[in-house]
């Protein structure tokens, strides 16, 4: 795949940042999870190439790195949307109708849990429990808590985040 100049530059910057992170953890297998967290912050996800870089720097077999990445649910090997919608499926939210909210979101966004919309604007996720049980049911968007949420609130929520999408930013992300 060929990349346009600005993306090429973007990727180079990200790898330079990763390199900086990895010098902290050189030959330190115990820091694997910390390193993966930091790498995911830079790239948004953990592509194969990034995993190889980490494996080499920390002196851990790539198979083990992959094993750890796939074990923990917060690590992702596929790119995520710019807005992460997380439906809390903890018990308190569940008994207050979180299941219906999740279904309605799936229908509205036309994606399944863990997937990203085609335009890359939303990723839909479900969480075990975000620890905001007294505000149940809870939906989080990019870490911001929307409490006592109902399926009726969905269209407005989606519209709000779509509208906030800056057209210039949208163009640079089209790859």
């Amino acid at each position: 795949m060929t990349m346009c100049n600005s993306c090429q530059q973007d990727a180079e910057e990200k790898y330079a940042e990763l390199k900086k992170v990895l010098t902290k953890y050189h030959n330190d297998p115990e820091s694997l999870i910390v390193a993966l967290h930091e790498a995911q912050l830079i790239f948004g996800y953990l592509p194969r190439d990034v995993q190889i870089h980490i494996a080499e720097a920390l002196n851990v077999p790539i198979s083990e790195v992959y094993g750890v990445v796939t074990f923990y649910s917060l690590f992702s090997t596929v790119p995520k949307g710019r807005n992460k919608i997380t439906v809390c499926m903890g018990t308190a939210c569940y008994v207050k109708g979180a299941g219906d909210i999740l279904e309605a979101l799936k229908e509205n966004l036309k994606i399944d849990v863990g997937e990203t919309t085609e335009d890359g604007v939303f990723t839909l996720e479900s969480a075990r429990c975000v620890g905001a049980c007294s505000l149940a049911p809870v939906v989080m968007v990019n870490g911001e808590v929307h409490s006592e949420f109902t399926a009726q609130d969905i269209p407005e929520l989606i519209r709000g985040y779509r509208a906030a999408q800056d057209p210039a930013e949208k163009r640079s992300d089209l790859h």
Binding site: E30, L36, H37, G67, V68, L74, R128
Partner: peptide, 22 residues
């Protein structure tokens, strides 16, 4: 930091996780 695995609350699993493993 954990990384989203409930089983890590189990103490021997947590020991592995702190050491950077599954």
């Amino acid at each position: 930091l954990g990384a989203g695995a409930f089983v890590c609350g189990e103490e021997t699993a947590m020991l592995n996780s702190i050491a950077g493993k599954r």
